[in-house]
Design a protein around this nucleic acid. Structure first.
Lengths: 144, 144
DNA sequence: ATGGTTGCAAACGCTTTGCATAACG
DNA sequence: CGTTATGCAAAGCGTTTGCAACCAT
């Protein structure tokens, strides 16, 4: 409850700053993503919301998530299964994907010292951001 | 010519070892990928081959590339534009993707010392392989 | 008032699949 | 020969879009 109120205020503030309209759908989608710590696909965001908002349409969820991402409110997860996935605002991090169960785990990896910026500069490349995905087996799938 | 003959022998040898059938389509697809140094989509593999092999079907190209990948003959490129892309056999490397023109550039990045294996082990994760994609602007797009 | 947002359904693009035919080993 | 690969067309799937109705501001 309190957390929800915090998220509500947070969203209102951000919407105001960005100059975007607040609608019940947008608020619900924002809240759903804010309270989850996984990496839901569009369908996975849509399904629980539909329970409490029966009129909600997939098209709106698709549009809204894309819209939020353009505004920098959320981030797109590097595609690991040919579905669009999102996660809330977080610091840059890597993802570990279990090849067996598909679980996606956030990973703190500071590999910036290993990026040879000089080599990239010498090739005229201007790096802006990166995506690192590590594949393997998670703890559950290793032991079973 | 000589190079082609080399690739032909190479493919025959590998097919023999793997126990897979050699067909004109498979040979053509293998050669096409072997002589390119980019990261073609299925369509981009198909188009030039169709010129010299009019009966060739997209379905075959899809199936064959997937088959080659399963056999370890080629590699799938981390999806950067929601299309399946492949590249020939190469040592592990990263990819630089130009956000403006979409060009994909191979990058030698040895960041293994930066992967904190102990942290992953302590979490019960067993890493097998990784994909690193760096986004930014390429030399052409930086200067224009 | 009015420009932006929604829901619906249709369209879309890429990829996969069922099936009959053809071809490799 | 028996098994496997091919071509064709149709289906599949996630995603996007056109449009009329609707709603924040």
């Amino acid at each position: 409850m309190e957390a929800d109120r915090g998220v509500l205020k947070e969203f209102e503030e951000k919407a105001r700053v960005l100059g975007i309209k607040i609608t019940p759908q947008r608020l619900a989608i924002y809240q759903e993503l804010a309270r989850r710590y996984d990496h839901p696909s569009v369908e996975e965001v849509f399904a629980p919301l539909r329970e409490i908002m029966p009129g909600l349409s997939m098209a709106t969820v698709y549009r809204t998530l894309r819209f939020f991402e353009e505004k920098g409110l959320i981030q797109r997860v590097p595609s690991v299964d040919d579905k669009v996935r999102y996660e809330g605002e977080k610091a840059p991090h890597a993802h570990f994907v279990c090849e067996k169960c598909g679980r996606i785990i956030d990973l703190e990896v500071d590999f910036s010292p290993c990026l040879d910026l000089k080599v990239m500069e010498s090739r005229g490349l201007s790096p802006k951001r990166w995506e690192l995905v590590i594949y393997g087996l998670c703890s559950k799938c290793t032991s079973s």
